[in-house]
Simulated scan of single mutants.
Amino acid sequence: MQISSRFTIAVHMLAALALFEDDRRVTSDFLAGSIQVNPVVVRRLLLMLKGAELVSVARGRNGSRLARNPSEITLYDVYRATALLEDGKLFHFHERPNPACPAGRTIHAALDGKLFDVQQAMEEKLREIRLSDIVTDMKAAMKKAQP
């Protein structure tokens, strides 16, 4: 199981906004070209990010902008905006293990707390990483790649 690509696509979008919004209009078509996805995917994610107050979206070809400074946006913010978690849980446990089986009867007691701890640790780490960190690393990689 993987976390949906919505998360990494959204981080890519936000980083592109931070990198380019002062130099050009950053439209959904521009973002789609950078990510190499259909513009509809970008538009849907923009709506999610707008709902989380991470971006402002102008109609038509005016483009999008960050609603906050990159240092004020954490990867946790992006995760919460895009994850679509059931009941806030990252791991969806199969609903009805067989109670007549010793494994089925005890799996929840053995695993649920551990999965909760894993999710908590991941979310705490996401809270530590800011969009500005990602943008700084991207700028360093771009500079390094220059001839």
Rank of each mutant, 00 (worst) to 15 (best):
Q2K: 13
Q2G: 11
Q2T: 11
S4P: 01
S5D: 14
F7W: 08
F7N: 03
I9D: 09
V11H: 00
V11A: 11
H12N: 12
H12I: 04
M13A: 05
M13Q: 07
A15P: 00
A16E: 04
A16P: 02
A16K: 06
A16T: 12
A16G: 10
L17Q: 02
L17G: 03
E21P: 00
E21L: 00
D23L: 02
R24C: 09
R25E: 08
R25F: 02
V26Q: 00
L31K: 04
L31C: 10
G33R: 07
G33L: 01
G33P: 00
G33M: 03
Q36K: 10
V37C: 05
N38H: 14
V42F: 08
V42P: 01
R44H: 13
L45P: 00
L47T: 14
L47Q: 10
L47C: 12
M48G: 01
M48R: 12
L49N: 04
L49D: 01
K50W: 01
G51W: 09
G51T: 12
A52T: 03
A52W: 09
E53A: 13
V55R: 09
V55G: 04
S56Y: 14
V57S: 06
V57L: 06
V57C: 06
A58G: 11
G60I: 01
G60E: 02
R61I: 01
G63K: 03
L66I: 05
A67Q: 15
A67E: 14
S71M: 12
S71I: 05
E72W: 06
L75H: 06
L75C: 04
Y76I: 07
D77H: 05
D77Y: 11
V78R: 08
V78S: 01
Y79K: 00
Y79E: 01
T82M: 03
T82R: 09
A83K: 08
A83N: 03
A83E: 15
L84E: 12
L85F: 10
E86D: 09
D87E: 12
D87M: 11
D87W: 03
K89T: 08
K89P: 08
L90I: 04
L90R: 07
H94I: 12
R96F: 15
N98C: 15
P99E: 10
P99Y: 10
A100Q: 10
A100K: 14
C101G: 06
P102E: 11
P102A: 05
A103M: 14
G104Q: 09
T106L: 13
H108Y: 14
A110M: 06
L111F: 05
D112W: 14
G113R: 08
K114W: 05
F116E: 13
F116H: 13
F116Q: 15
Q119A: 10
Q120P: 00
Q120K: 15
Q120C: 10
E124F: 13
K125C: 06
L126C: 14
R127L: 13
E128H: 12
E128D: 13
R130S: 09
R130F: 12
L131A: 07
D133A: 06
D133Q: 07
D133M: 08
V135I: 11
D137Q: 12
A141Y: 01
M142C: 02
M142D: 11
K143D: 08
K144L: 14
Q146K: 09
Q146Y: 09
P147M: 04
P147T: 02
